[in-house]
Amino acid sequence: MINIKNIKKSYGDITAVDDITIHVRKGQLFGLIGPDGAGKTSLFRMLTSLLIPDEGSAVIMGYDTVKDYRKVRNILGYMPERFSLYMDLSVEENLNFFATVFNTTIEENYHLIKDIYKVLEPFKDRRAGDLSGGMKQKLALCCALIHKPEVLLLDEPTTGVDPVSRKEFWEMLKSLQTKGFTTFVSTPFLDDAELCDEVALIQDGKILDMDSPQNIAKKYPHKLWSISASNNYKLLRAIGNYEKKKSAFAFGNSVHLATANEVEIEEIQNYLKSIIDYDFEIKPIEPNIEDAFMELMKEE
């Protein structure tokens, strides 16, 4: 559905997108995951034909985003980084406007947005500017869906939204997937990655890895341990000098310690006991995508 080939984009000296190649298959929920400033928005703008790539190409359903930009624009549902709604128009007026702009009506495609819109319906006369962040996000998604696009491009739809709204949003994306939508979505939250079929991890304009989230976690090269104690910070500093450490990062109320594969649990226990005088708990764990991302970042 989406074929991005060796695409590049620079602004002056800064290379925002550096030689990126991505293939998204029909019906996939594809996640582009990386921090702010990694180049996500530039890539989205090239896909939506709003920016022209310096090199390489992006083709959506056979249409080139530069040459056939009018065609491309017709088949896309795009949600830009900020919820681009008219804040002085009501919920219904926004939806109506975007439907008309795409030569359709709310009624015609109501079935597509029904599940999402029913939460908004009680507030349909409220101005978009008076909605909470989660509601704005839902309305923006409805506006992007209302013309029954072939491909959904969602640029950081969950930024600035609380964990509950975020979770709900991903549930919506999952249910849209069952309706056959192909979705390309970006997010800075690594835990969002687990919900995608395939993800590309992006940093400084480059793809660090691209695979299913499970495979990315599996490729993690080290043995990983979770250690918890009463004071995370002290524990982390204590581990800091451990010679067999590959890396150590805080993870909520525990610390993830990576070591070489031959290291055994007793070894670590003994080392820690020798330098700290409080209780701790250690167990081996499976790496998650955040562990993998940080490992890949370090390699860069």
Partner: peptide, 13 residues
């Protein structure tokens, strides 16, 4: 400023 121009551009308008 609002970013709505982005959507208008991407639309068939």
């Amino acid at each position: 400023e609002l970013g709505t121009m982005e959507i208008l551009l991407v639309s068939p308008l």
